[in-house]
Amino acid sequence: MAEERKRRKREEEEAEEWERRKRGRRKRRRRRGGEEDPVDVLGEEVMGRVMELLDARSVARCTAVSRAWRGVAAADRLWAPKCAELMAGKAHIPRLTMIPTASKLSTYSMTIADGKRTRITKEDLCDHDWEFRFTIAAPEYWRNLDPSWKHTGPPMRRYFHPDGYHSADPHDAVWGGHECTYTIITSFAGNGCIRDHYVRINRWPPMKVSRKEDWSWELSNHLYRYNSIPDTDKKGCTGPLFPLNDHNQSEKKCWFSNVNGVWCGMNQPDEIRTIARQPDMWARDT
């Protein structure tokens, strides 16, 4: 009985709401002088041309104005050139831009978010090649072995492997030929913010992680630094498919696993299910 009453009440409310909207719309149409919805009057095509003139942030805001505005402002046609513009001149293109089902708008916003990410993942380390240089604080003996200091050749290179090993090119003057492993360490404060985040090779001094304007990475300590080498032409792109947030990890309930001496973080299992639905996303160049 109560159920029946509730249902009837809801229907009444819906009808009222519908009536109210209809009235509102009619009123709006009659009113002249700056009070008309340009999407109604100009149509989607012309409004799309207007939005082409706007910067990305303004168009993003247009998506939150009304349903009609959203229909225009979220169009791939508007966002495809903005995506291209965003990627131009960057060192790395995030792998998430390869998600085939994503709209250009969501690709754009995910890419922006990923560009701001300061937390490095194993994918970032393994996907990029790295230039290795000693700093001025390094002992002269080591600096003399570094071609970038002596201007005798290109900087030395270092590689991170998914199995946790770390390597250099053959004939590398500094490389001792010993076994070498790497670890990403992330610790969190009680409020979910990252307290400490660094990459460590063997038991050597930790390297703090930073990121540049062009989305390239730098790992550095007082003795040496690693710089990711631009690789925008790499097929399948680089980095994690689903990046980790920099904050509020405790809220998102991240789980971690230690794989071959490397701490890997993953977001919620439902994200993993999403990956599983797109099996081709696992395909990776070797």
Binding site: R28, D37, S58, C62, V65
Partner: peptide
């Protein structure tokens, strides 16, 4: 000219400027 009216406004300000009903 229309674009300039939109530029730099929050969604709420755009709704006010053009008299648009919120229906999201």
């Amino acid at each position: 000219c229309i674009a300039d009216t939109i530029k730099g406004k929050t969604p709420e300000e755009i709704r006010t400027a053009f008299g648009i009903e919120y229906d999201l």
